[in-house]
Each structure stands twice: as structure tokens, then as C-alpha cells.
């Protein structure tokens, strides 16, 4: 494999400023600068050119996975991560690299005007290099996006599962909407943790807002009840709809030892009774 000539690297170095200007112009023209501050863009473009030239000056490998390119790779990873956060798509992010091709090719054409064979070779090399760097940017962009999505999913899960304190020693978990197995698991885990944190003796799982349950979810519910008992607290399930009761019986799940109440109020009344609390109307 041919390498980039010292002349090419030299040309890059001495024309850095004009290269930077035309590159940023073409970036702006392509719309790849949306949501990116101008100062940041200039800084990033400048840093990239510096690490690119530094890596090329070290000579040796043009394989972007080589350690000479570590600094450039880190720079691009940071860049694509920040682009993902401001909501750019992968095309806009990758344009950062690909928009450099035009200005670079023009530069090389001037530099090697008299040597067409050399020009073709160097164009090919620099093009390969930029493609590899561009691909790296897209890959890390994708990874960053997936992380953002994963975090948002987790946040949503936690938001949709509030554990509330009803009374000193009584926690309630009002579940709303369709339960899938993953959500049930997360909710149940947070309920168990809250029991330890608060020292609550009784936990009420209210499923009034749950239209249906499938086998897996029903099993998760029962496992949670058992786990709560093992930890030394009691669990009451309230608001079991007729359809859900039918499902549970139909599935042959054993509800023995599970206390159920028609609604949350009844469950609270039972909890207070167990705690030895009586509620009376004043006057």
C-alpha cells in the first residue's frame, strides 16, 4: 500500500488556515452545522486538522485503528457524542469529515498539478483515510445514540413507577397501564428497595389501573409477594379486576397466602388494623 508523501503532509501543514476556512464554508453550506455553535465548530475543525497532521507526521500506519491515531479517534468520539446529544442525525455528523474532502482535493490538485500519476495516488490515499475516519465517526455516533435512547427508556421506566408512602409503615405501589415483564421487574425491585430503606411493614400493590396481565406478569407479581415475605414485610394486592382474577385462576397460579382486597381503601384499612391504628371521626 502506498503512503501519503511528505509533500502532501507538508502541503496540509502550510495551507492549514485556508483549508480550515473553505472546510467550514462547505460545512455550513451542507447544513451540517445545525445546533452547533460557530466557535465550537471552529475549535473542533481546528483540533481535528491538528491531530490529523500530527498523526500523518508520525508517518507509519494509515490504519485508523493504529495507536498513532488514538488522539484523532478520541476527538471524533467526543464530537459524535456531542452531536448525538444536540440531536443531529448520523448524516450531519458524518458530513463533518466528508466535507473536508472537497477542500483537500482542491489543495492536492494544485500541489501535484504537474504530476498526474502522483496526484491520483495521493487522492486515493487521502480519500481512503477520510472514509475510514468518517466511518469511525458514524460508528461512535450510533453508539452514543443508542446510549441516549437506553438512558431515556430507563428514565421513563422509573418515572412510571412511583412508590408512595400511605402511612408510617405502609407503602403503596399504584400500577397503571399495561404491564410488560421488564417493567414489572423494575417496579418490583424498586418497591423491595423502598421497603428496606423505609422499614415499612406493609406494601400494597394496587393494580386497579392495569387492564390485563399475562402469565409472566402474573408470575412476577406472585414472586414479588413471596420475596416481600422473605424480607419480613407483608404484601397486599388491591384492585384485582374480574378479568385479571379470571386470568390468574385460569393459569392455575397459586394465590394461597396472598392477601387481596377489592380496592386501595380496603387495603389501607387492613394495613392500619394490622398496625393497631384506629381512625375515628372527630366529633
Amino acid at each position: 500500500m502506498a503512503t501519503l508523501h511528505a509533500t502532501t503532509v507538508q502541503a496540509l501543514q502550510s495551507n492549514k488556515l485556508s483549508l480550515l476556512t473553505t472546510w467550514i464554508e462547505s460545512l455550513e453550506a451542507s447544513g451540517a452545522t445545525r445546533n452547533v455553535k460557530e466557535a465550537d465548530l471552529k475549535q473542533q475543525a481546528n483540533d481535528f486538522l491538528n491531530t490529523l497532521i500530527a498523526a500523518l507526521e508520525q508517518g507509519g500506519s494509515q490504519n485508523v485503528n493504529h495507536e498513532n491515531w488514538a488522539e484523532t479517534r478520541v476527538l471524533l468520539e467526543k464530537l459524535s457524542h456531542s452531536r448525538a446529544l444536540v440531536g443531529q442525525d448520523s448524516q450531519q455528523t458524518a458530513s463533518f469529515i466528508f466535507a473536508l474532502k472537497g477542500p483537500l482535493f482542491a489543495l492536492l490538485q494544485r500541489e501535484y498539478a504537474e504530476q498526474p500519476a502522483q496526484l491520483a495516488e495521493q487522492l486515493w490515499e487521502i480519500s481512503e483515510l477520510l472514509d475510514a475516519l468518517g466511518m469511525h465517526t458514524i460508528r461512535t455516533f450510533q453508539k452514543s445514540r443508542e446510549l441516549v435512547i437506553k438512558r431515556q427508556q430507563e428514565e421513563l421506566l422509573e418515572l412510571s413507577t412511583p412508590v408512595v408512602k400511605l402511612w408510617d409503615g405502609v407503602l403503596a405501589l399504584p400500577m397503571i397501564g399495561t404491564l410488560d415483564s421488564q417493567r414489572t421487574q423494575v417496579v418490583m425491585e424498586s418497591l423491595l428497595q423502598r421497603i428496606v430503606d423505609t422499614g415499612a411493614e406493609i406494601a400494597i400493590i394496587d393494580i386497579t389501573g392495569v387492564p390485563t396481565v399475562d402469565t409472566l406478569v402474573a408470575q412476577h407479581l406472585l414472586k414479588t409477594v413471596t420475596a416481600i415475605r422473605l424480607m419480613g414485610a407483608d404484601c397486599i394486592i388491591s384492585g384485582v379486576r374480574p378479568q385479571i382474577a379470571q386470568t390468574i385462576v385460569h393459569l392455575g397460579l397459586d394465590l394461597q397466602g396472598v392477601v387481596t382486597k377489592a380496592n386501595l381503601a380496603d387495603a389501607l384499612a387492613l394495613s392500619l388494623k394490622r398496625l393497631g391504628v384506629t381512625v375515628t371521626k372527630a366529633v
Partner: peptide, 9 residues
């Protein structure tokens, strides 16, 4: 502990 209880079940 909660994690222990879930695992045992």
C-alpha cells in the same frame, strides 16, 4: 436483602 430475596424466589 431485596436482591437475595428475589434470587431465592
Amino acid at each position: 436483602q431485596p436482591a437475595v430475596a428475589i434470587t431465592l424466589v
